[in-house]
Design a protein around this nucleic acid. Structure first.
Lengths: 199, 199
DNA sequence: CACTATACATAACAGTGCTATGTATAGTGC
DNA sequence: GCACTATACATAGCACTGTTATGTATAGTG
């Protein structure tokens, strides 16, 4: 029942149907109280959806198999991040919407950690300068990805603006010590995985 | 009356008091209908608040007087942008919250335009490569600013993370053709205006 | 001075999340 | 097998939300 409600909520989110306590349980044959036994209220449902969103994101990032080129992998992670955000924008909005704030700090940690590991690999491979702080560079990559994803899903920028990720990440990685030409090539190859799902 | 309601709503937003139709008019001696005559409903109030937010942001950016160093000014614009977002996070959230989407496209245009003009100035001064697309670089700077502002005001990153703006903008501007050492210096000087208001 | 439009007030309506209270079922100790 | 208890719901109602239908007083206008 719990997962049924979660799936239904996710589906209503995708179809842009308003997700309210009563519209959620309508059709399931179950009453409004079920939401309280399983989630403790609507806030609990949103939290569960948020975790679901991060789980889906983590899975999407994990699908970016590590290759010999760690810089390519970093760009591929960025592309996968954007694809995830654009394909389910409502879920993405919930994930980064304040209001629940500080309820489960570190929900996004796994996302950041996969970036950190890849930066470390790139540094170990000699692509970035020896003194590079992995967390710092990973955070900056994340900020770029989130900035683009947020501006596109919120409306101000058209979906085509996602392409800015290529020069931005290239600039960031080059500044971290990677050789410009090789960096551009790696990022372009990693970015090739970006495909916006046709409606 | 209209501006009284707007100011009151902005104040309630600042003090984190829930802004509802009835709490808004309570104490003003006026009834709920006033909101409908002036704003056409709560959605209209949010739209007005959003415009208020953009006006305040535009004013904040305009206060960054142009100096002889256009790259410094670009960084100063970024810092001013972040200060504005962090000082009134709720207003910032409303500005970039979807839901009203596409109601007034181009509300953020003035924000972007001030960046575009400064990029053009920097290019004319020979700081950026001749072929630099001003809109492109301005958009990328915006994405960095918004990414940091959003992640900080939403919770995942601590306020100290705003400092990432310096290396990120430096990397971006250097990639655009500016000389690394001089760029770092300009950005640092422009960033010096960033002061988080003490609570 | 009649007429009309504006600017509200009053009251009610449907919808929201939530809770208090009931009930049926499943598990558990004896 | 049987009382006992906890779980998993259902039913009904509460306080609150935004919205609207209707009234009314005032200001402007021919």
């Amino acid at each position: 029942m719990r997962s049924l409600l979660l799936e239904r909520a996710a589906h209503m989110l995708r179809t842009r149907a308003p997700v309210t306590l009563r519209t959620l349980v309508a059709g399931t044959g179950v009453s409004t109280m079920a939401v309280y036994t399983y989630f403790g209220g609507m806030d609990g449902l949103w939290r569960a959806l948020r975790q679901e969103g991060f789980s889906r994101l983590t899975a999407g990032l994990a699908a970016v198999g590590p290759t010999a080129d760690a810089v390519r992998d970093l760009a591929a992670l960025g592309a996968a991040y954007l694809v995830n955000a654009v394909e389910s924008p409502d879920l993405y909005r919930i994930m980064f919407d304040a209001g629940f704030d500080l309820e489960d700090p570190g929900a996004a940690d796994e996302t950041l950690h996969s970036l950190v590991r890849t930066v470390e690999r790139a540094t170990a491979d000699g692509r970035f300068a020896a003194g590079t702080d992995p967390l710092e560079l990973a955070t900056q990559s994340w900020a770029i990805g989130h900035g683009l994803a947020s501006l596109v899903t919120s409306g101000p920028l058209p979906p085509a603006a996602l392409a800015h990720g290529v020069p931005m990440l290239t600039a960031l990685f080059t500044a971290a010590g990677d050789e410009p030409g090789r960096c551009r090539d790696s990022v372009a190859r990693g970015w090739a995985g970006l495909r916006t799902a046709a409606p």
